[in-house]
Amino acid sequence: MNVLPSDPAARAAVRQGVSVSVATGLYGISFGALSVAAGVGLGPTMALSLLMFSGGSQFALIGVIGAAGTPVAAIATATLLGLRNTLYGAVVSPLLQVRGWRRLAAAHVTIDESTAVAVAQPEPAASRIGFWVTGVGVFVLWNAFVLLGALAGDALGDPRAWGLDAAAAAAFLALVWPRLAPRRAQLVAGLAVVATAALIPFVPPGIPVLAAAAVAVVVGLVTPNAPNAPDAPDAVDPAEKESVR
């Protein structure tokens, strides 16, 4: 296909971005249908999807509204769940190196999926391509399918029947897989699994991910830096890290 860039790393980033966009975008059907069912009309549903554009926060907000919660509770829950996007912004911003309106646009499409694809790329150029393809791809498809879900409701069926929830989980696994070689990364991965699984039953969605990130910060602070150790690649700038393999 001649629309794909010639560089293999960039091509891989485009392919990953497109597959993640499709799997995530189709989930918009669920949000659109649930939002209308929760009593949020078509207009506010589309405003949420276009302006908030963060799946976890959107589901949380309509959940509180559907349960007859207060506006303050709805805003607070959605905002708390959006906190991880601040972390994502800080992680992807040095990779993107954009200013002005492009930075404003990049901030808007800074979500789980675009960050995950960006940071998983072996080189900065591929990271930028992965970020934009995924961010814009999810934005377009998510909003299109939210509209479809809001209009057609449950007539389209459950995305789970198509295995799309498993596809999203597998996409995240595939993105982290090549990063698990260093021993310190394996330690952090194990702790992240424990922290996430332990917290899921007790805290709102979105918080376990932040807790896992906090665990990684602690490990990074308490383990000494040893440039000659076998896991030295993770001491390299994250933008260049994978290219040493």
Binding site: Y88, V119, V176, A185, P208, V209, A216, G220
Partner: peptide, 12 residues
């Protein structure tokens, strides 16, 4: 390390 933790947490 945070990147690894975020991705693993999202898998879970």
């Amino acid at each position: 390390l945070v990147t690894v933790a975020l991705l693993v947490s999202l898998v879970v």
